[in-house]
Amino acid sequence: MGSSDGSAPEGSRSLVGAVSADLIVVVALLGVGIATVLTPTLRIEPVQTLIGLLYVSFVPGYVLSLVLFPAADGAVDEGNEPRDATETSPSGSDRPGETGIESISALKRLGFAAGASFVLVAVVGTAVSLTSIGEQVPTTILVVSVVTLVVIPVALRRRAELPPAARFRVSLRTVPSTASSALFRSDSRADLALTLLFVTMLLLAAGSVGYAVTAPKEKGTFSEFYLLTTNQTGDLVADDYPTEFVAGEPRPIVVGIGNQEYEPVTYTVIVELQNVRLENNRTVVLERERLQQFSPTVSHNDTWLQYHQIEPEMTGTRLRLTYLLYRDAPPATPTTENAYRDLRLWINVSAPQGTNANALSAPQQANTNAVRPVAAPR
């Protein structure tokens, strides 16, 4: 209900007064995290790693600490009474225990925030991994952000229920002195041990992030390379590849690359039709016809597809349609041995009706770029 003088309701004034610098910083961090997930240009490995560390080590657990422990350290004495006994809670009781008032030291609050954050992120990350609802890191950041945003109004309400003098608040001007006092002016050996443990955890976390950002990611990097066709409904499938061709008559096929190299890569794809023979347990290329060459640049975790037509001129049976994949520029003589990846499809190419088959048995130099990209089917 509004006041008789027309001013804002007391509850509204309490909620506004409960806002402090710490919650403003938390909301800003959540905004950065959500923007990182929803903006493709920001979804790069170092940025996601740093944002992920903030969530794992601090943000969600800190907001939960504000819900469970809204009072400032020292606002409640051992008898569970406020130090300022003249102030009462909004419910009219001067016993904070009756309204759930709890307080912990700044150091214990930081420890609680770190532990609770690790647990929350682990649970959400495991759920995302098991349900396959999206990419694990971006989806985990988004879900944790939404959960934290939902909890923030609860934290504000819990803080607003306390007398102003008893509320836990953070001022940016007092952060250095408060942190120094909490970390280096402990009154007991237990507090000192907890301080050393907390500092060690921070150093280990910072070192892990530094290594994750700067270390070369050689293990686990790979590129997917595959051929696809379109079925009767227009869907791409890894099946029913064309094997019977007529010289000069095109048939469609799709080549694809999936980049999991943790960096953008400029690939080279060379398409050749080869007449091969097995000699002394090794394959010898007797003739080759260069059909096409592609040079796409593919970002990490992205996929490139090229719809094109295969239009061979060389005729024969058991000819090898070969796709060679290279990182960057190919060598002067591309082979399956020096390719980064290769794909092979055995096909038969017959001469058109009414044409002398022997006249088309050799590669036609005038048609080395016979493959033409075509639009993807809708």
Rank of each mutant, 00 (worst) to 15 (best):
S3I: 07
A8E: 14
G11D: 06
S12D: 04
L15Q: 06
V16Q: 09
V26A: 12
L30W: 03
L38S: 05
L38W: 07
P40E: 05
V47F: 14
G52M: 02
F58I: 02
V59D: 01
G61K: 04
V63I: 13
A71H: 06
D73Y: 10
D73P: 00
A75H: 07
P82N: 10
S93W: 10
D94P: 05
E98L: 08
F112N: 02
G115M: 04
V119I: 14
V128M: 06
S129P: 00
S129L: 13
S132G: 13
T139S: 15
I141G: 01
L142E: 06
P153L: 05
S177P: 00
F184A: 14
S186T: 15
L196P: 01
L202N: 08
V213P: 01
P216Y: 06
K217N: 07
G220K: 09
F222W: 15
F222H: 13
Y226W: 10
Y226R: 10
G234P: 09
V237A: 08
F245D: 01
E249A: 14
I253S: 02
I257E: 01
G258D: 06
N259S: 08
E261S: 11
Y267G: 09
R277C: 03
Q306K: 12
H308T: 15
I310M: 12
T315Y: 09
R318A: 15
Y323E: 07
L324R: 15
L325G: 08
R327H: 12
A332K: 15
T333A: 14
N338M: 10
R341P: 00
L345V: 07
L345T: 06
N356A: 11
A359Y: 05
A362I: 01
Q364F: 05
V374G: 04
